[in-house]
């Protein structure tokens, strides 16, 4: 499957996330939409990782070069990045949900439109 399909899929997911953030009022749903954006990025990174890996191996094979460990590992940093995103997203979830819970305790709602004390 060509890489453009992955790019389009990811951008679609990403845009759905943005539209969700724009249209929803529930803080938890907004937050889930942001998670969707992050996961779109994860998908894209993995796809690119595979693409670069394939391209490197193919280039080596075309030039009749020995396939070394380094060439086999090309693109692995993209996948490592995905793990980092997962970890950071998890940390964000912890903090974010705590903040939402704190808000719920104080105003018994998670509707972001109630947040308008600070303006102008």
């Amino acid at each position: 499957m060509p890489i453009t399909h992955y790019i389009i899929l990811s951008l679609a997911l990403f845009s759905i996330g943005i539209v969700g953030v724009l249209t929803r009022r529930n803080a938890i749903i907004i937050f889930m939409c942001i998670e969707l954006m992050l996961n779109a990025v994860n998908l894209l990174l993995v796809a690119f990782s595979k693409m670069h890996n394939y391209a490197a191996i193919k280039a080596a094979a075309d030039q009749k070069l020995p396939i070394t460990e380094a060439i086999l590992n090309t693109g692995s940093e993209g996948q490592i990045f995905v793990f980092f995103i997962m970890v950071v997203a998890a940390a964000e979830v912890t903090v974010g949900l705590a903040i939402i819970v704190m808000m719920y305790r104080n105003i018994h709602s998670v509707d972001v439109n109630f947040l308008n004390r600070l303006k102008h």
């Binding site: 990403f14 996330g17 953030v21 803080a27 964000e92 808000m103 004390r117």
Partner: peptide
Amino acid sequence: SNEASLKYFLLGAFSTG
């Protein structure tokens, strides 16, 4: 403080995306 924190969090996470 609550409001600021939630706004900051939502917008900040968005920009992280």
